[in-house]
């Protein structure tokens, strides 16, 4: 069975940073339709900061929790915005979930992932259907849990999560949240994917790609 080292985690974050950098324009454009057009900018600032902070880590010394906490802190301080507290909480919760472990087996990694999703929901208090990244993270979390229960491989678990995140993101197009802004926007919010859900799909897909090659 594969185990994930701190170095693997660092590589994972670097892969995510590269994917976000590549796709940042699409994410900002999605945000331009229903938000303030900066989601790609913000995610890119955040993951660039993560990349730089992890570059300073000695992965022979740092345990997985340290990798997660370093990512959380650097992301948050570089970003603020909505994504900052959401992702910082996600990473911190992942770090807490694997506290004390020097490398992560499949179950630990799945727990870390589920903790991320939970952290995002706790921090943002969004409900399913509110047309946020929660609509991608929650299905992904449920899918990974189910796959792990079926005792699938790490790669298969994350592949299931990625597919669920993508479907969740796609589904935000049909959502017209009943509250707040959306009740004025009415039909105008329909048909557009939530940018945070879109970046979630990208992140989880990148995770699956990385784990497919470990």
């Amino acid at each position: 069975m594969t185990t994930i080292t701190s170095q693997n985690l660092v590589d994972l974050f670097l892969a995510i940073a590269a994917a976000i950098d590549q796709d940042k324009e699409r994410l900002s454009e999605l945000d331009g339709v229903i938000g303030d057009a900066d989601h790609g900018v913000t995610m890119n600032i955040g993951f660039t900061a993560v990349k730089n902070a992890l570059g300073g880590l000695d992965t022979t010394e740092a345990d997985p929790t340290t990798v997660f906490n370093t990512s959380a802190k650097s992301f948050l301080n570089a970003v603020g915005a909505s994504s900052g507290p959401l992702y910082a909480t996600a990473f911190m919760r992942a770090g807490a979930a694997v506290k004390g472990e020097s490398a992560l087996d499949r179950n630990a990694m799945v727990e870390a992932f589920k903790a991320m999703a939970k952290g995002i929901q706790d921090r943002g208090k969004a409900e399913r259907g509110d047309k946020t990244m929660v609509d991608a993270w929650l299905p992904a979390s449920e899918a990974i849990e189910a796959a792990a229960e079926r005792d699938e491989s790490l790669a298969a678990c994350f592949a299931a999560a990625a597919t669920a995140a993508e479907e969740g993101a796609e589904a935000t197009k049909t959502m017209q949240a009943s509250k707040g802004r959306a009740s004025w926007l009415g039909a105008r919010s329909l048909g557009h994917m939530d940018p945070g859900a879109a970046s979630t799909a990208l992140i989880v897909r990148t995770m699956a790609d990385v784990f497919a090659h470990i």
Partner: peptide, 11 residues
């Protein structure tokens, strides 16, 4: 002070 159109972080 936050980034452009982005809340400042807690620090």
């Amino acid at each position: 002070i936050g980034n452009v159109f982005a809340s400042p972080p807690p620090d």
